[in-house]
Simulated assay, not measured.
Amino acid sequence: MSTPTPSPGASPAVSIIVVSADSGASLRECARRALACTLPLQFILIDNDSHDGIPQAIERDHQGDERLLVIYNGANLGFGPAINRAAAKASGDTLLVLNPDCLLEDDTLQRLLDHLEQTPKAGVIGAVVCDESGHADPASFRRDPLLARSLRTLIGAEGEGVNIAGPAPDRMVQTEAVSGALMLMPRDVFRRIDGFDEAYFLHCEDLDICRRVRDAGYEVWLAGDVRVLHGKGTSSRHRPVFVSWYKHRGMWRWFRKFDPAARNPLLVAIVWLGIWAHFLLKIPGQWWRLAKRKRRVASDVTA
């Protein structure tokens, strides 16, 4: 497929922002698919100190394509801080925050932008992110992780949990939160809420920004008629304890910022103990799965 040629002086309809951190080969395909879209766009790849050579390979693949901007941080700043730095360089009136393992189809951007135009109060629009089998990620359509909801989700109890039960909708529906794997936002809304909270390093910053968008008087919507292929993060596979640490730290920050239960000192102590006990209990299984994966890779190499 030939590279779409933007009209001289045309401003991009959307600035796509992707954060990489040793994200693997899927990042290369993510960039290729996005840059194959026919809409006027800007693709900003902001790299958090990768050592896999993929960001450099993307620069070579798309050399001369003025729509591509690669920013090298030289250190792992975390997801939110990297997005904020990229957004400061964005030239589009709309931002699309995209995970490096999400693959766009040619019409995906247009459909999302159409939804944004038709929903004047929208501050965030998400899509249904799916695995290769077409199964929707429950995080695509969810609620604020208030304490009671989180506990029901954790133990599998009936009642209102964090994820909204049932098949993903096939139309535009208003919700409390969507997956951070794909989030479309007007740039002026992003600026008004000061972007992502940089105190989160990885995980829960998407829940935070959805909540702050709503608190600022805007709406969060899920475009249920838009499906996007989403793989599993390389960082989660290769650094599970590192990722889990920051995920639990993000849970704690969200609880302290937004949950009314955080006004009760006894509950605060119980939640703190519960979060970090849960983190510690997960470590043996994460190490075992990592060791098993390494043995399988080594076996494949020697076979």
Rank of each mutant, 00 (worst) to 15 (best):
75 A>R: 01
27 L>S: 03
100 P>V: 07
184 L>P: 01
228 V>R: 00
98 L>M: 09
299 S>D: 15
163 N>Q: 15
248 H>F: 15
191 R>M: 13
267 L>E: 02
48 N>D: 05
171 R>T: 08
73 N>E: 15
249 R>P: 02
8 P>S: 12
65 D>R: 03
43 F>E: 05
63 Q>G: 13
109 L>D: 04
151 L>S: 07
234 T>I: 11
109 L>W: 05
153 T>D: 14
98 L>E: 05
16 I>S: 01
236 S>Y: 15
256 R>T: 07
270 I>Y: 10
32 R>P: 04
80 G>T: 04
29 E>Q: 14
20 S>W: 08
54 I>M: 07
76 N>S: 08
167 P>N: 10
74 G>M: 09
292 K>N: 04
269 A>Q: 12
213 V>K: 04
43 F>P: 02
212 R>T: 08
93 D>E: 15
48 N>I: 02
237 R>H: 15
44 I>M: 03
149 R>S: 04
114 D>L: 10
221 W>Q: 00
242 F>R: 10
187 R>F: 12
151 L>A: 10
162 V>A: 01
193 I>D: 03
125 I>G: 02
129 V>Y: 09
108 T>Q: 06
196 F>V: 03
264 N>S: 12
208 D>P: 01
301 V>K: 11
8 P>A: 14
256 R>H: 05
26 S>N: 12
233 G>L: 11
120 P>H: 13
1 M>W: 12
183 M>H: 08
44 I>Y: 00
299 S>I: 14
11 S>V: 15
278 H>Y: 15
176 E>A: 12
218 Y>W: 13
